[in-house]
C-alpha cells in the first residue's frame, strides 16, 4: 500500500493532481482510493487530499504517521501536514509562500525560514524551487503536474501511465505544457 497526502491552497490544482495520480495508479492495475474536501475549501482555504493505492485499499483516509509521501504545494501547508508523515516518509514541498488572508489582515504572521526548519527536522525532504522553472515552461498554472513529476520517481508507476493520465485529464491545449512540467519535476528528484 502506498499512502500519499496532497496539500496546498484552494486554486493551486491539488485536486486535479490527485486525479492524475489516481488515474496513473489505476492504469498500473492498482486498487486506488482518494478522499477530498470541497465547498468552503475552494475559497482560498487549505486543501488536503488523501490518495492510497495498492492491492486492496479499505479506508479512504490515511492514518496518522502512515503517509509514505507528502506532496505540498506550499510551505506552511507542508508543516501543517507533518503528523501524517511515516517514519521513512518523504516530503516534497514547493518552496513558496502563499500568504493567507489572516496574515494580510494583520491577525497572524507568516513565520520566516520554514524551509530551513523543514530541512533540519524532516529526514527525507525535497524542497523544490519551482517559480523559475514554471516561468521557463511558460505557464504558472502547471505547479500541480510539476509536483507529480517530482513524486513520480519514487512510485512504482511506469512513465507511460503518467503521460496517459495527463493526456486523459488535462485540457488538450495545456497537455504539452504540463508534460514539460512533469518532466521538469521528474528531473528535480531523479
Amino acid at each position: 500500500m502506498t499512502n500519499i497526502i496532497m496539500a496546498g491552497v484552494g486554486g493551486q490544482g491539488v485536486l486535479l493532481a490527485c486525479r492524475v495520480l489516481m488515474e496513473a495508479a489505476f492504469y498500473s492495475n492498482y486498487d486506488v482510493k482518494e478522499s477530498e474536501i470541497h465547498g468552503m475549501a475552494q475559497r482560498g482555504g487549505s486543501v488536503e487530499a488523501h490518495v492510497r493505492f495498492g492491492s486492496d485499499v479499505a479506508s479512504p483516509l490515511i492514518p496518522n504517521a502512515a503517509a509514505d509521501f507528502i506532496v505540498s504545494f506550499e510551505l506552511c501547508e507542508a508543516v501543517r501536514k507533518l503528523d501524517y508523515l511515516g517514519k521513512h516518509g518523504v516530503l516534497f514541498v514547493n518552496n513558496e509562500k502563499v500568504i493567507p488572508s489572516s496574515v494580510q489582515a494583520g491577525l497572524a504572521e507568516y513565520p520566516e525560514a520554514l524551509d530551513t526548519w523543514l530541512d533540519n527536522n524532516v529526514p527525507n525532504v525535497h524542497l523544490l524551487d519551482t517559480l523559475q522553472a514554471r516561468k521557463d515552461i511558460g505557464s504558472k498554472r502547471c505547479l500541480n503536474i510539476l509536483m507529480l513529476g517530482a513524486l513520480s520517481n519514487r512510485l512504482d508507476i511506469p512513465e507511460e501511465n503518467w503521460l496517459s493520465a495527463i493526456r486523459e485529464l488535462v485540457k488538450p491545449k495545456y497537455v504539452d505544457t504540463n508534460i514539460d512540467a512533469f518532466n521538469y519535476g521528474r528531473s528535480c528528484t531523479a
Binding site: M40, Q42, G45, V79, R80, S101, S102, W117, N121
Partner: peptide, 14 residues
C-alpha cells in the same frame, strides 16, 4: 517529527 516551534497562520477560506 518534532513539533514546529512556529505558530502557523490560519488559512480560512475567504
Amino acid at each position: 517529527i518534532p513539533a514546529c516551534p512556529e505558530t502557523l497562520p490560519p488559512r480560512p477560506p475567504r
